[in-house]
Design a protein around this nucleic acid. Structure first.
Length: 465
RNA sequence: GGCGUCGUGGCCAAGUGGUAAGGCAAGGGUCUGCAAAACCCUCAUUCACGGGUUCAAAUCCCGUCGACGCCUCCA
C-alpha cells in the first residue's frame, strides 16, 4: 500500500485516487527567462521518479507541468534584450525541455502555457468576482478577497491575523485587505497586455496555475506538486482561488520537494549561487544528478557539495558494475548458489517496493539495488554464466529504470574507439612479453584520453570515464 | 517576531515504541606483473542537549539549543 506525506494534513496517508487506477498530477514548472539550474533539476527529477513509480504500480498517470511564460521577470529581461517577451519565453521553454530530456525526465503529458490559457483565466476571474471572492480596483487591478475564504492559510498553517504584520502594500495598490493578492494586473505603458473586462493587463502569478489546472485536469486532482518554497503564497492562493471558484476540494495530496542546498543555502536565481543544468551535465552524467537526489529524501534539503557529488559518482559506477557481462570462461554456478541468487532477486523486488511505498523512500530503494548488485557481482565472480545472470540483471535494470537511472556506458566516436582498440592490442602484446614498462605507458596514455581499462583472465576491457 | 520542516558515525542517509539499513570516505585482506574493478573483514552500547511517560524510546510528551525553508519573486 502506497503512502504519501501530504503537506496539507502534515501526515503520511494511504494513497487513494479519485478514480480507480488513474492519477491526475499537476506540478508547478518554471518561469522561463533564464537557464534552469540544478535545483530545478532536483524538483523535476523528484516528480519524474514519483510518476515512474506510480506507473510501475499500475496507475495511468496524467502529468501536467506548466510553463509560466508571462511574468514581470520575463518582461524585464525581454526589455533588457530588446526582444519580444513571448519569443524570449518560447526560447527558454524549448531550452528547458531539452534540459529535462538530457536529465532523462519523461516529458509531462501536457505542458500548458499562460499565454495560451488567457480566455479561461479571464473567465475564472470573472467567476470569482461574481461570487464575491474578488473585486476590481479603480486602477484596473483585480484582487482576490482573502477574507471571503474561511480556510485561507490552511496549507501553510498561517492565520490571517498573523500574516498582516509582515504584509505590505506596494505603491499604487488598492487593496481592501493587505493580504489580498492580484488576479489581474493593469498593464503599465509599454508592457505586453491582453484585453479584459477590466482593461488591458495580464494575469497574476497564482491564477495562472489554477486556470491551467482546471483546463487540463478538471476541478479536482489527486496530486499537486512543487518545491516547498511555493507553499506560501503560491499554493495557498491556488487553493483559495480554485476552491472558491468550484466549491469543491481542489487537490487531495500536496507533495513538496525540499530545496537543493549549495554552501548551506538554497540555490536560487535571486541568491545567485547557481549551477546550471547544462553546466552540470557538461561535467557529469544525468545518472549522477539523479543519484544525488535518490540518495536523499525528496522532502528534505539536498546537500550539494564535492563530497555528496563524488559519492553519487561512485554510486553510479557501482550500480553499473552489476550489469557487466559474465566471464567468457564461466563454468556455471551450482544449485545452491543459483537458489541464493534467485532469493536475492525476490528480496530486492520486495525491499524496493516496500521502500518506495513508504513515501517514495528512494534511499531505501537504492539500498535494495546495492544489495542485488552485490549478489550479481559475487555470482559472476563465482563463474555464473550469462544465462544464469540474466534474470537478476533484468530485474536490476527494471528497478533502476523505475528510478530513471540509465546506467549506460559513455560513448565516444568510432575513430577514437578504433584508436583505443589498437592501443589495447599493442598493450596486450607487450604484456604477453612481460614488457610492463610499455604496458603501463599505454595505460597512462589511454587514461589521458579518458579511457579506463581493466585486466582480467578473459582479457582487457575498457570504457570511457 | 510568526509559520513549517528537521537535528542519527568523518560525510550523505534509512529506521518513527522492541534494542542502529545502505552508500561514500578510511584501514586491513583476496585477486592482479602492478593497477583498476569486484568481493571479504573492520569502522555508532549509540541517535543535539535536559527532563518525563513506558517492562521497553533514536522513535511518544515537555523544555532548551541549533540548522534550513517560507512570511517579497523563487523548483
Amino acid at each position: 500500500m502506497l503512502k504519501i506525506y501530504n503537506t496539507l494534513t502534515r501526515k503520511t496517508e494511504e494513497f487513494q485516487t479519485l478514480e480507480p487506477g488513474k492519477v491526475k498530477m499537476y506540478v508547478c514548472g518554471v518561469t522561463v527567462y533564464n537557464d534552469a539550474h540544478v535545483g530545478h533539476a532536483m524538483s523535476a527529477i523528484v516528480f519524474d521518479i514519483i510518476r515512474r513509480y506510480l506507473e510501475y504500480r499500475g496507475y495511468d498517470v496524467k502529468h501536467v507541468m506548466n510553463y509560466t511564460d508571462v511574468d514581470d521577470k520575463i518582461i524585464n529581461r525581454a526589455n533588457q534584450l530588446g526582444e519580444d517577451p513571448l519569443k524570449l519565453s518560447q526560447r527558454y521553454i524549448e531550452d528547458y525541455s531539452r534540459d529535462l530530456a538530457n536529465l532523462n525526465v519523461i516529458p509531462a503529458t501536457s505542458n500548458p502555457q499562460v499565454s495560451k490559457t488567457m480566455p479561461l483565466i479571464i473567465k475564472f476571474i470573472e467567476g470569482l468576482i461574481q461570487k464575491g471572492h474578488a473585486y476590481a480596483a479603480a486602477n484596473g487591478d483585480v484582487y482576490f478577497r482573502v477574507t471571503s475564504d474561511d480556510d485561507y492559510g490552511r496549507l501553510s498553517g498561517r492565520k490571517l491575523e498573523d500574516m498582516q504584520a509582515g504584509a505590505r502594500i506596494e505603491v499604487g495598490e488598492q487593496k481592501e485587505h493587505p493580504m489580498d493578492f492580484a488576479l489581474w494586473k493593469a498593464a503599465k505603458p509599454g508592457e505586453i497586455f491582453w484585453e479584459s473586462p477590466w482593461g488591458r493587463g495580464r494575469p497574476g502569478w497564482h491564477i495562472e496555475c489554477s486556470a491551467m489546472n482546471l483546463a487540463e485536469l478538471g476541478e479536482q486532482i489527486d496530486i499537486h506538486g512543487g518545491g516547498n518554497d511555493l507553499i506560501f503564497p503560491h499554493h495557498e492562493n491556488e487553493i483559495a482561488q480554485t476552491e472558491s471558484y468550484t466549491g469543491r476540494e481542489f487537490s487531495r495530496y500536496w507533495i513538496h520537494n525540499g530545496m537543493l542546498q549549495l554552501g548551506g543555502e538554497k540555490m536560487s536565481k535571486s541568491l545567485g549561487n547557481i549551477i546550471s543544468i547544462k553546466e552540470f551535465l557538461s561535467q557529469h552524467s544525468s545518472d549522477v544528478m539523479r543519484m544525488l537526489v535518490l540518495n536523499g529524501t525528496y522532502r528534505a534539503p539536498l546537500m550539494f557539495n564535492d563530497e555528496t557529488l563524488a559519492a553519487a559518482e561512485r554510486n553510479v559506477e557501482r550500480l553499473k558494475s552489476a550489469l557487466k557481462p559474465a566471464s567468457s570462461s564461466a563454468s556455471g554456478l551450482n544449485a545452491d548458489s543459483l537458489s541464493a541468487l534467485s532469493a536475492a532477486i525476490e528480496s530486492a523486488g520486495t525491499n524496493f517496493t516496500e521502500a518506495m511505498d513508504n513515501d517514495f523512500n528512494t534511499a531505501g530503494a537504492v539500498a535494495a539495488l546495492f544489495e542485488l548488485s552485490k549478489f550479481i557481482n559475487t555470482a559472476r565472480d563465482n563463474g555464473a554464466t550469462a544465462d544464469q545472470l540474466k534474470s537478476a540483471q533484468d530485474t536490476f535494470k527494471q528497478l533502476a529504470g523505475v528510478l530513471g537511472l540509465k546506467l549506460e556506458e559513455k560513448k565516444g566516436s568510432s575513430e577514437d574507439e578504433a584508436q583505443v582498440e589498437a592501443l589495447i592490442a599493442e598493450r596486450t602484446e607487450a604484456r604477453k612479453q612481460k614488457n610492463w614498462k610499455r604496458s603501463d605507458e599505454i595505460r597512462d596514455q589511454l587514461k589521458a584520453m579518458g579511457v579506463t581499462i581493466e585486466d582480467s583472465k578473459d582479457g582487457t576491457t575498457w570504457k570511457w570515464s
